[in-house]
Design a binder for these strands. Structure first.
Lengths: 308, 308
DNA sequence: GGATAACATAGGCACATCCTAGGGAAGCAG
DNA sequence: CTGCTTCCCTAGGATGTGCCTATGTTATCC
């Protein structure tokens, strides 16, 4: 079997026209290099050097092999260098999962943070769908993610809560923002909810369902839309009210619904934002980097939670 | 130390997303491939796959490594292929030594023979200087050569006589061609000799010196020139006579000195043409090819000698 | 002709490679 | 939820490879 080691010994010998000199350069004893050359000649089935008393002389086959041997060694070195550069965050891809409101108001900033520190990397922020993200985590396609999670930890997953974000009632009608909104009022309200919020396995869904369930009523949504932005716009147009995380409200209402405002629920409800990864996994430097930066971003906006 | 074997195992595993499948493809047991992957991860200092229960999932580092691993394997395969193609005479260089009159009237034909059989090869016919050729043989830079040699074998060299070529006296004066030329007449003649013939360590030099020495006289050359062609031209112009191998006379006189002719010496003298290579060497296929073709060419012109 | 230099050979140690056997966790089916 | 299958890991042992030192052989140099 052809090996890089054989090619390295071959090249050193070819260049020095001497096995002894090659061994010295490579830091081996002379018989070791001699053996590698012999092995290479055997695998190729052809003599590469003529042993002529004292000294060796390359054959024309050696002349032909040399550039290919150099190219192969160079390719291997390049492979090593490429990996090193990825490890050093100079190149390569950093993949991180981020779903729910977290991505909404921290995603772009997080990517900016990463690129500011490591301009050469590609960043993939995965988070089209909360189910997919959890599935990706479970299957190992994603190493770590920041999610809005139910308070209990998922099976086989390690969950580190880093912040909580209050769920606030938003409306374009100042009347409805005078006092905190009770479950009763919430159940009677005409709501627009982003579908993802209801369907996804995150804490918003769990929290609100639970709150409404206590009134004995099912969630009443007049309108269901895909994303939070659309919901906020509809609130701004006075067509319905909604419940969204405070962080999203701060960011979206001035831009999309300047006439709307927000008020707490009563009792207060919170989304829990947490770092999630497979239990027992050793995190890569890239994952640790993303966790650190994402946590900092989130905690600058939402209310930090002491880990555990 | 990075190895091709590790890269092969890595690629198979990456493509199948499975160590077991990779092992099956490569013909190994599963733990063997597993160990190679682990070794590669150790040398690179980074995880390439996440072990996620049943199955493995490539990391982004693996994504980055893959093209380089493929390039490295391809380069190694290319090296192997290049050598195979040289061994099959499809490419590469064939080097052969040929000095003296042999090259003069068999060189071009020999090269043509080689190229007819193996159109892709480069041919190097070494023979500027007989001393250099012998030195190249001794130092191993040349594997084999065809030379005009003294009858005794050189030290450490294996000499296989393949033909002899009579040395003939050539002149533009028909008077001098009536009878064979004795040593006496030769010593008195006004000669033009190609310098190479006199200075080189080949049989012509030895033979003629010996012949003249018996008359008690030193070689008398009126003119010395570099090459045989010039000598023949000068003979054709009637400025001097010369002694050259019969094969050279046949080829050169009609072309360069149509008015000249030739006659034997008395006693007849011969150049011995022989294949020479280092004693105890195992000849490469290329060398055997050249020896076969050169011998055939020479024996078609000069008088064949049974080997040994 | 003896000293020197360079490669081959021999023998031995350490580690790599590869195998089989068996354990554990995840996924899947009943 | 229980058992089966799949896939990876670990353990242990046989074989092979890599590397060393010591020594033999041969050509070169003085």
């Amino acid at each position: 079997m052809l090996s890089l080691h054989q090619l390295r010994c071959f090249l050193a010998t070819y260049e020095h026209r001497s096995i002894t000199a090659a061994a010295e350069e490579l830091g081996y004893a002379q018989p070791s290099v001699s053996e590698q050359i012999r092995g290479l000649e055997k695998t190729l089935g052809v003599a590469l050097f003529r042993r002529v008393g004292r000294g060796v002389v390359p054959t024309t086959v050696a002349d032909s092999l040399r550039p290919h041997a150099e190219a192969t060694i160079a390719a291997a070195e390049e492979a090593r260098r490429a990996v090193a550069s990825v490890v050093a965050f100079e190149t390569g891809t950093i993949r991180f999962g981020m779903f729910g409101t977290a991505r909404l108001y921290a995603g772009a900033g997080l990517v900016a943070d990463v690129l500011a520190r490591h301009p050469g990397v590609r960043v993939e922020l995965i988070g089209q769908n909360s189910n997919d993200v959890q599935e990706d985590l479970r299957r190992g396609r994603l190493e770590a993610a920041m999610l809005a999670v139910p308070t209990m930890s998922s099976e086989g997953m390690h969950v580190i809560p880093v912040a909580r974000d209050e769920l606030v009632y938003i409306s374009a009608d100042p009347e409805r923002l005078q006092t905190p909104v009770t479950a009763q009022r919430l159940a009677e309200a005409s709501l627009v909810m982003p579908e993802t919020t209801w369907r996804a396995e995150d804490s918003t869904r769990t929290v609100l369902r639970q709150m409404l369930h206590e009134t004995g009523r099912n969630p009443q949504t007049r309108i269901e839309v895909e994303d939070v932005e659309t919901a906020v716009e509809l609130v701004g147009m006075g067509l319905a009210d909604s419940v969204i995380p405070h962080g999203a409200a701060v960011q979206l209402i001035p831009r999309l619904a300047p006439k709307a405002g927000w008020v707490s629920l009563r009792p207060q409800q919170f989304d829990t934002l947490a770092i999630v990864h497979r239990a027992g996994a050793t995190l890569s430097p890239a994952a640790r980097l993303m966790i650190e930066l994402a946590t900092a971003r989130i905690q600058a906006i939402a209310e930090p939670l002491a880990p555990r």
